[in-house]
Every structure is written in C-alpha cells, then in structure tokens.
Design a protein around this nucleic acid. Structure first.
Lengths: 101, 101
DNA sequence: TGATAGAATCACGCTGTCGTGATGTCGTTG
DNA sequence: CAACGACATCACGACAGCGTGATTCTATCA
C-alpha cells in the first residue's frame, strides 16, 4: 500500500510525465530528452534517475552518451487508463453540477 | 498532462489509498472510515474531501451522518493495474541485479 | 431550547520534493 | 595530456502537502 502510493508518486509530476512521453517513441540520450521537453539538463537527469530507480526506465551508456529507454511499454497503458478515468471523473462532476442547476 | 499528474497525485498517498480501500466494499460514513483505517477524524475528512473534489468519491448526507461512496469502481481496476506494473518493475530490478552479480 | 454526536474547518509546524546554478566526473578527440 | 562535451551530483531556497489539536458547524433528540 505504501509501495503502491510511492509508485503513483512517480507519475504525479508533470515534468516527469513529459520526460516519459519523450521516451514514448524509443530510446533517447539525455540531451535529446532535454531538447524534446525544454527542461533544464539537471532536472532531466534527476527525473531520469528517479524513473530508473523506480524500475520504469533503463539506463544504457553508449560511448560518451547515455541512452534511456522505457523497460515495459505497458506503463503507457497505465497512463492511458488513468487518463480515461480522469475524463470519466470530470464528466461525472459536470453531470453532478448540472443536476443541481 | 498537468491534469494527469494531479490525478496520479490523488493516489500517491498511503492514507488516501487506505481510505479508498475502506470504501471498496460499499458506502461508509466518516466514523466508519475512521474505524476501518485507524486514522484521525480530521485527517479522514480531509482525504474524503480531496477524493470528492477529484471526482473519485461521492458525498451523500443521510440524517446526521454523511456517507461516502466510490463513484466509478473502475478506479480499483486502475489500482490493480498499477500494482501489477509495480510488481513487474520490482521483478525487472531483481533481474538486472542478478545480471550484474 | 439545550445537549450531544458526527463531520468539517482552521491554524500551525513539519517534512519532502521540486527547480536552479554551480561544480564534479567521465569519455572522447585533438 | 589538455580541452571539450555529455551527464551526474551538490547545496540551497522555495513551496506544497501532510498530520494534529482545537474549534466550529449541523442535525438529532431529550
């Protein structure tokens, strides 16, 4: 339960989701992620480290570059399902509001 | 993306997950949730309010009591899938460790 | 209406995490 | 070996969210 909360925490940061989204189409090195997201290099490194520790992403040094890659693409399924739930929740809130007005 | 991160944030708290878990078997009033979770009344109220604002839970006053109920039980599917992903990530980490040793 | 129980809210201290600028480390290339 | 680029880490200020104890609000019932 504690662990599950921590796992959700991994995806509870907009910038981290942006980093993850940059890796959607395949492996990228750090600089490429920086360019894709517009975030600072230090911040991207930090988020990538977190994602690595969480076991979501895999680190692969290649020469002087370091590539990162999503280990299990099923995480995107999780993101999609969460987004679906989010939309359903939003819709329900509007319905509840309409029922009052 | 920002909204999605906020949605994940809802489930990134152990106590909030505990509250949600108490509501798994059906509607409960606040005191019942307090007893199920062992949390303080103020804290339970706070979490229930958050869950309500997030559109995950529905508030229904009944006499002097206030019952809370999960709106869309599909959230439990989301929790289950997240837990599955979590386990997969943990397994992968062990494999990576074994590959080194 | 006064008393009581259930629920919500307030004020506050505290901790964790985020983002940044600077610095450190590592590998390549001249 | 010196210099440079890529990446990681550090130290720090800022801020948001958690949990608590006390208080307030609301509905029921004597």
């Amino acid at each position: 339960m504690e662990a599950l909360a921590d796992y959700f925490k991994v995806f509870s940061e907009p910038n981290r989701l942006a980093v993850l989204d940059a890796l959607r189409q395949g492996p990228l090195n750090v600089t490429a992620v920086v360019e894709h997201t517009g975030l600072s290099q230090a911040l991207v490194s930090k988020h990538l480290k977190l994602l690595t520790i969480a076991g979501v992403v895999k680190r692969r040094p290649e020469g002087s570059l370091v590539f990162y890659e999503v280990i299990d693409r099923a995480v995107f399924k999780l993101l999609a399902q969460a987004e679906k739930q989010l939309l359903a929740a939003r819709r329900q809130q509007l319905d509840a509001l309409a029922a009052i007005l």
